Simulated scan of single mutants.
Amino acid sequence: MTTTYAALLRGINVSGHRRVPMAELRVLLAELGHRDVRTYLQSGNAVFTTDASDEDALAAALEQAIETRFGFAVDCLVRSGAYLKAVADACPFPAAELAGKQLHVTYFSQPLTPGRFASVDPAAYLPEEFRLGDRALYLYTPDGLGRSKLAEVLTRPALLKGITGTTRNWNTVVKLVEMTHRGTP
């Protein structure tokens, strides 16, 4: 069965470091046997179709191919279009009422438990807020991510030890859902 996936690369093309040109990423994904490869922005978002069904294996193959081609390691998450849509649909914040820079989703490599964030006092960061979803964290930052004190706390290595996460603003979340559902009812 053919499935459409999004590959979410972490920390590439930031301030000229760890450069992965999107044209080369598209070629690399095609060389891995994927079809209908498209990219979005320069920040490491790619959409493709494949008959494979193991997201972790797809991510591992892409990580290895990137390291071989570009000479540095890049963490990757691969998620199905159905998953991306479910995450967007489950957003606990009024997404339609907010600017894209105010709402973010951090996708994680595994489920998160509330206990992982027990040391974070949500009241200390209001009006910023976060909620946990299925392998996702929703983050509301009224002044944007760059000024967010809560985002700084939530990304501390001690809180995220042993898991991979990568964040996308709401505009990108919506665009990736659209891209992975192109041509589907």
Results as ranks from 00 to 15, higher is better:
I66E: 02
I66Y: 05
I66M: 04
T68S: 15
R69P: 09
R69N: 12
G71D: 06
G71V: 08
F72W: 03
A73W: 00
V74T: 09
V74D: 03
D75A: 11
D75K: 15
C76D: 03
C76W: 04
L77V: 07
V78Y: 06
V78P: 01
S80W: 00
G81A: 05
G81E: 03
A82G: 04
A82N: 03
A82Y: 09
Y83R: 02
Y83H: 04
L84P: 04
V87Q: 11
V87M: 06
A88T: 11
D89E: 09
A90W: 05
A90Y: 07
C91P: 00
C91G: 01
P92Q: 00
F93P: 14
P94L: 05
A95Y: 00
A96G: 10
A96P: 13
L98Q: 11
Q102D: 07
L103T: 08
L103N: 11
V105D: 09
T106E: 12
T106H: 10
T106D: 09
T106G: 13
T106R: 10
Y107D: 10
Y107W: 15
F108Q: 10
S109R: 05
S109G: 15
Q110E: 14
P111Q: 06
P111E: 08
P111M: 06
L112N: 10
L112D: 07
P114Q: 08
P114G: 06
G115I: 03
R116C: 00
R116H: 01
F117N: 06
F117E: 05
A118R: 14
V120R: 02
V120I: 15
V120G: 02
V120E: 12
